[in-house]
């Protein structure tokens, strides 16, 4: 069990607004981390700094122990290893579900179309979307689109998967199918970092819960520690109103 991704003293400033005020994190192989916090706490920004969707203002990100530079080649290599699933789904609308999953296998990894198709079929099968593989995103529901997006990220065989509120843009009845897919990944020991508002899901999903407040990690530990017996007052406040739901 090694550290796959390490964040060291990450700061991020937008204009005059300091969103991250020095966040450290070691993501261990096989860990499932859920990051919680109020809107504006910096949790999405932090996640997006891990694969440089946002450039950290200062601090470092390490992958497999080596610091990641900011050249395009290094960023591309990092992003192949650190996949991401977005709140806004972001499938490529001009490609079918199959095309979406195959695309980077061919254009980034240089596979033949036949190799890419074989991998894409397997990944689409795992998210139960093989029957819709020739559909364009516009003809898929939000939940189906997000499952394809997960297959697209996994096809690259990342070591870590970052999930940025993957169910927040979905209609309530579609949330379950996506969470089911994420659970299946957890069962296969996929290393994941999840930003979410679904506390109940986080409780069952996570091996570690991190509570972010005002750009800093305020509290972290097992789901039982953080969600059932939070030490910090802010965490308790955040959880008030959720506690009537059973975890």
């Amino acid at each position: 069990m090694g550290v796959v991704v390490r964040a060291e003293k990450l700061h991020k400033t937008f204009g005059t607004l300091e969103v991250l005020k020095g966040v450290d994190l070691d993501v261990q192989e096989g860990e499932r981390i859920a990051i919680l916090g109020k809107s504006g706490s910096g949790k999405s920004t932090f996640l997006r700094c891990l694969n440089f969707m946002e450039m950290p203002s200062s601090g470092r990100v390490y992958f497999d122990g080596a610091p990641v530079g900011t050249s395009q080649a290094e960023l591309c290599r990092l992003r192949i290893n650190v996949g991401m699933v977005f709140q806004s789904l972001n499938l490529f609308p001009h490609m079918t579900a199959m095309g979406n999953v195959m695309e980077a296998l061919v254009s980034v990894k240089g596979m033949t179309k036949a190799q890419a198709r074989a991998i894409a079929s397997e990944q689409l099968g795992r998210v139960d979307m093989l029957s819709k593989s020739e559909s364009y995103p516009i003809n898929l529901s939000g939940g189906q689109q997000q499952r394809v997006a997960i297959a697209r990220a996994l096809a690259m065989e990342p070591r870590v998967l970052l999930l940025d509120e993957p169910t927040s843009s979905l209609d309530p009845e579609l949330v379950g199918e996506v969470l089911k897919v994420i659970n299946a990944l957890a069962a296969r020991k996929m290393t994941m970092v999840l930003v979410t508002h679904e506390l109940g899901f986080a409780y069952h999903f996570a091996s570690r819960v991190i509570f972010l407040h005002d750009g800093r990690i305020l509290e972290q530990g097992t789901p039982d520690q953080v969600l059932k017996n939070p030490a910090e007052k802010r965490t308790q406040e955040f959880l008030t109103g959720f506690n009537e739901f059973s975890f």
Partner: peptide, 30 residues
Amino acid sequence: IERGQWEAGRAVGMGRVTLMHRIIFPQALR
């Protein structure tokens, strides 16, 4: 073209040229 399309391309490891050629330009062309 929405920001999410650029991000989705980058997130699977595309460089500038591939991203433009495969993702952004085909959509923009329409």
